[in-house]
């Protein structure tokens, strides 16, 4: 290759990269830099100016409510992540591996997606008549004689937020896992059986490791969505559960841009750590 053609090739490379790079700078890098910058601005009760200060950061970590929200976010995320995995994995195992016919497994996956035909808010709010004091679950349990007074903890509690989030996000766990399980060659499982391994051994030594990339992708989906959540906790907790997302909403609502930015930066860092952590488990580039 001559020097000129190498230069020409370099030019082509840059030209092809340019639109993507411009897009990312405009809509990802610049906004993030802006948020980081604003988090150091000086906030007074009714105004904000661009003289730099650490006050908002200090306020965040000095406030029990804010740090509490950070821990609540992390706790709820871990609970919902665990639940979506515990509920989603067996479902994915059935859809992706146990069902022999590809048509039926596709139909089952489409069924999982049906709730998405209604808007996100409706799906969240639909839990109210289900979980309420005079809601469907309480009525059924009362009629069946299992309980004598309605369970009040079902709605407007942390429990209702967990139930709501798990129901909404479990499908993001099922999809990627079912996809990975569907790609497993049945001969491999038969080979393992032929070598004397029972079902448990085959699951832990063959099926689960081979589905791990799906678990990681599903976990990243669920984590990213749950960590940034504010609507489900807003609608189902009766304002008892405050997540980082809820704090951002209220701070923005009262024009406290600096504090909202601080929380935004913390949330972004948290997400970065979580996603990077999951990506360390498997090398996704190799799998897909």
């Amino acid at each position: 290759m001559t020097a000129t053609s190498r230069i020409r090739q370099k030019k082509t490379t840059f030209r092809l990269l340019a639109p993507g790079v411009v897009w990312m700078i405009l809509f990802l890098i610049a906004p993030i830099m802006m948020i980081v910058y604003v988090s150091f601005w000086t906030q007074t009760t009714f105004a904000i100016n661009s003289s730099l200060t650490l006050d908002s950061w200090k306020n965040f970590f000095a406030s029990e409510a804010y740090v509490g929200a950070l821990w609540t976010t992390i706790r709820l995320w871990l609970i919902v992540l665990t639940l979506t995995f515990v509920i989603g994995y067996p479902a994915a195992l059935y859809v992706g591996l146990m069902v022999k016919s590809k048509t039926i497994s596709t139909v089952l996956l489409v069924l999982c997606v049906i709730p998405f035909w209604t808007s996100f808010l409706i799906r969240v709010l639909a839990w109210r008549p289900m979980l309420g004091k005079e809601g469907a679950i309480n009525i059924i349990l009362l009629k069946a004689g299992i309980i004598h007074t309605p369970i009040e903890v079902l709605l407007f509690s942390e429990l209702s937020v967990i139930i709501g989030m798990t129901q909404i996000y479990v499908v993001f766990m099922v999809g990627p896992i079912a996809f990975m399980l569907g790609r497993i060659d049945h001969n491999i499982i038969e080979a393992a059986r032929d070598l004397g391994a029972g079902f448990g051994r085959i699951f832990w030594k063959i099926i689960f490791p081979l589905s791990l990339p799906g678990v990681v992708v599903g976990a990243i989906f669920v984590s990213v969505m749950v960590l940034g959540e504010f609507a489900t906790s807003g609608a189902l907790s009766g304002r008892k559960v405050n997540l980082l997302g809820n704090i951002i909403v209220t701070q923005v609502g009262s024009l406290k841009w600096a504090m909202a930015s601080v929380v935004g930066v913390i949330l972004t860092i948290l997400l970065g750590i979580v996603v990077a952590g999951f990506l360390r488990i498997v090398d996704l580039k190799r799998e897909i």
């Binding site: 060659d185 491999i188 038969e190 080979a191 059986r193 032929d194 070598l195 004397g196 063959i206």
Partner: peptide
């Protein structure tokens, strides 16, 4: 008898090695 208790070897056409 289930396959894993038979003690019969099987070599698959596509080898079916455990990829991981």
């Amino acid at each position: 008898l289930p396959a894993h208790e038979r003690g019969i070897g099987f070599v698959f056409q596509n080898f079916a090695l455990f990829p991981h």
